[in-house]
Design a protein around this nucleic acid. Structure first.
Length: 351
DNA sequence: AACTCGGGGGC
DNA sequence: GCCCCAGAGTT
């Protein structure tokens, strides 16, 4: 069975080249690492230009370690899951400061780097070093749950282990890098979530799901997704060509990114003048202002939250005091120096 | 084990 | 609308 799978899979790959953004560049540990982190939970097409621009600006681990977190986040702006960028930066510093700038080869050592989990460690170990570690991503879970007939939930740790065990068996005798690359491409192009190309599939003859007519029922997922509704009111305070930005911290979304000060409420209705006045006074030390405009609600759907945002334009009539810790007055022409979430980039555009 | 963390595209 | 994408960290 292992021979059938790998032979057919690798033959399919030879006839079906899939262009990837790193095709024309080196595939050492640094480049594999960057590409895999950028592509986490992201379609290749979406991450394509991010990868090329990131590599251009940070061509090696030293360049990345030497940059500021702000600049790294700017290159990540719009890509989402910003902890990936923060961890990438932190890990680059670890490699430079503690490992002499050299990536470890061993799977377990790779996993010690922040942001490197099972998948990314296996990808680096196999693609950069040729080690026998199967990658288990969404593609692999789908292909193997169908082919092997795994009907448990792929969301559970047990499901992950089952798929990993099957992948390990099927990989035996193949080049780990070739096998890993092939199975992910195959999942992306043939064994797709919707409308898989079973009639053209070189594996269908021995595919459990195809033989048992349950392709659409696999893989099984059990995770339920919560969806919280939130109402964010951005206070766009301006004073002589500058606006006030706040760098987000804590455990909420967009940590490390900059937004105007936010008043969160329970509806899209404008906060009361009283609330806004108190907030402006707290932020600037003055309550002399003119509330000139409020945008229509802008909706941004995240994987686990739906955000309704409104931008309230407030012009100060008196010089503000020194910005509080974590806040900064930014000339509007320098806004691009500050990494901001998509909703803020869009909402800040002139109408 | 369950939650949290962005944004986009296919259907 | 719902699902899923070259997942990982925290609680």
């Amino acid at each position: 069975m292992a021979t059938f799978f790998a032979t057919r899979l690798l033959a399919w790959t030879r006839d079906n080249h899939r262009p990837l953004p790193w095709d024309n560049g080196p595939r050492d540990a640094y480049h594999v690492w960057i590409s895999e982190v950028i592509m986490q939970q992201t379609r290749i097409v979406q991450g394509w230009d991010y990868y090329l621009k990131f590599i251009e600006r940070f061509p090696d681990v030293g360049a990345l370690a030497g940059a500021t977190q702000e600049e790294v986040l700017r290159y990540w702006q719009g890509l989402g899951y910003y902890s990936r960028a923060r961890n990438l930066h932190k890990a680059a510093k670890m490699v430079v400061d503690e490992l002499g700038g050299v990536f470890p080869h061993a799977f377990e050592e790779l996993k010690k780097l922040p942001g490197v989990g099972d998948y990314t460690a296996a990808a680096i170990a196999s693609f950069a070093f040729g080690l026998k570690h199967p990658v288990v991503d969404g593609n692999v879970k789908r292909v193997l749950s169908r082919f092997g007939g795994y009907e448990g939930s792929i969301d559970e740790p047990s499901g992950h282990k089952e798929i990993l065990a099957l992948a390990t068996k099927l990989m035996k005798g193949s080049s780990p890098a070739d096998f890993n690359q092939a199975i992910m491409n195959f999942g992306a192009l043939v064994c797709t979530p919707k409308n898989p190309q079973c009639t053209a599939c070189p594996l269908s003859k021995k595919c459990y799901a195809y033989r048992n007519e349950c392709v659409d029922a696999l893989p099984v997922r059990t995770k339920k997704k919560t969806n919280t509704l939130r109402y964010l009111h951005f206070l766009v305070l301006s004073w002589r060509g500058k606006i006030l930005l706040h760098q987000r911290g804590g455990k909420d979304i967009w940590r490390g990114l900059y937004t105007p000060p936010i008043l969160e409420t329970r509806s899209t209705r404008k906060p009361t003048l009283k609330t806004v006045t108190a907030e402006v006074r707290s932020l600037t030390g003055t309550d002399r202002f003119e509330w000139t405009d409020s945008s229509d609600p802008v909706i941004q759907v995240l994987s686990h939250q739906t955000l309704h945002g409104r931008f309230h334009h407030i012009e100060l009539l008196k010089k503000p005091g020194k910005a509080r810790e974590g806040f900064v007055w930014v000339p509007t022409r320098h806004l691009d120096d500050f990494p901001r979430p998509k909703m803020v980039v869009e909402g800040g555009k002139p109408e």
